[in-house]
Structures are given as structure tokens and as C-alpha cells.
Design a protein around this nucleic acid. Sequence first.
DNA 1: CCCGTAATGATACTTGATTATCATTTCTCA
DNA 2: TGAGAAATGATAATCAAGTATCATTACGGG
Lengths: 130, 130
Amino acid sequence: MSTRVTCQRSAIGEVIRSAPGPLHPREILNLASRMVPTLGIATVYRHLKHLRESGEVRAVGLGRNDVRYEPTDRGHHHHFLCRECGEAFDVHGCAGGIANMVPPGFEVQEHELTLFGRCGECVTSERTAG
Amino acid sequence: MSTRVTCQRSAIGEVIRSAPGPLHPREILNLASRMVPTLGIATVYRHLKHLRESGEVRAVGLGRNDVRYEPTDRGHHHHFLCRECGEAFDVHGCAGGIANMVPPGFEVQEHELTLFGRCGECVTSERTAG
DNA sequence: CCCGTAATGATACTTGATTATCATTTCTCA
DNA sequence: TGAGAAATGATAATCAAGTATCATTACGGG
């Protein structure tokens, strides 16, 4: 058998599934460590690799040098990246009029939209007003 | 004087300015090497650093693990990344309705849109029909 | 045209992300 | 329950991007 059910595996899956947006490997480690304190980063990468190969998870790049992982079953959506706390959130809905942005002859297959700003929590704890 | 006009400097600037979209350091090296065959990658990075610090050039990230450099004076635009040849192109025009994609309480400062597909040249040299 | 200094290029180094290794642990099924 | 194999965790290895070093080259003012 090649896929045993271990607590590490289920913790990592659970963390990715319940996140409000794509996660860094480090974030996955931190969150899953609450359930499995001995969890190591190698195991996180191992499962990420399996999950990607099985098509359950995919990598997305927000900004430069920023690779995060998300479940593939969330349908078409985009991302919001909070510049204050660094957390990423899925956003739904999609900007229109994309097809006519490209030069004639180009073929558009997909698009990725990332919004940058401050998330609700960071806006609320308004440090500029403190 | 801290900024001599060398042929390397002008070649690098020229290459970045005349590109149809943001370039990798490697691409900059390759293109500028046509004008200055002895050019080294260290010089490319040195000038990229200066150009970023002086605000003439900025880094953009398209997809995962992909950092490219573009002039800052091109106004608001987005990017198209050809999956076949790997070249990036600026696209003008901008998708609307972005503000109401985010949850209430979030503050949007900027957005980046990347289109993926095949560029005109790759579509024309249609290898699927060959 | 010459000199001093900034720029250059080769390369070693650093850094961070990811992967491989390997001894140990722990599922699973008999 | 016990054996065997897969999974784990610590850490070494790898890899690529970018930076620092340093001897050499080449602008450009005099």
C-alpha cells in the first residue's frame, strides 16, 4: 500500500482545506504543528508533492518569490494578499473584458489576478489611527 | 562621479526599454550580449540593482518563481506570458469591477493581472497543425 | 594622451526553497 | 501481537537567484 493514513497526512490536508486562501509550506507547518507537534518540514514538502501529483493541490505564485499551495477544488477564483500581515485570501467573482486586452492573434488560456492591500483584520486594528 | 556611461550600462538600459514586456536577468544578459559580447551576469545584476534603486526599473513576478524586470514609466498595464516560448508581453487595458470582488472591510491598493496562453508568433507557427 | 577611479567580469559566496538520505517510528494486515 | 514496509524527522545535499570580492579594464577630466 502506498498511502497510509497518518496523523501528519490528515493534519496537512485539513490545514490546506480549511485555510481562507493559499498557504506557504511554512504556514502549513506552523498550523499543522498544532495538531502534530513533532511535524517536520520535510513531511510537509513530501505531502505537498504527493498532493500536487494526485491533483488535489496546486501551487500558485502571488507576487515575486512567493509560492503557496491551495486545493484544486475551489473553482475559478483569484487572490488577495494582505501587505500588512502577509496572509492570502481567496476572492470570488472575476474581472471581465480580459479577452480583448491582448493583441490580435494571441490565444488566452488562463488568467491570474492578485489584489494587494490590507485585509479586514489589519484595517480594523488600524495602526495608522493609534 | 558615480555613474559613468559604459557600453554595458547603455546596452542593458536599451534592452530593457525596447522589450515588449518584462525580462529575466538571463534574457537581459542574452540580448545585451549581442551588443557587448563580453558582458557578464554580475554586471546585469549590478545595473538592475541601480536601476531599481533609482526607480527606473521594477521587478514583477509572473507565475511561480519567475521574477522579471520592466521600466517603471509604462503606466498601468498587465502581462501576458506565453507558455510556449516563455516570453512576457505587456497588455494594455484593465479589467473592471475589481473593488467589489473583495470582502467588505478589505482595502485594495493595487492589483496585478497575468494572462497565460500562446503569443501571436507561437500561434502562427502552429505546431499542433503541423 | 594619462591617471585615478568607477566599472567590469570571473567566480566564490550567501540565502532560501526544495529534495534526498537514512536511521527510527508506526501503520496495517496476517 | 509481530513483521515488514511505508512514513517520519533531522539534517545534509542540491539548486537557482542574487551579492560580494578582487584583480583587471576603460571612462573622462585634466
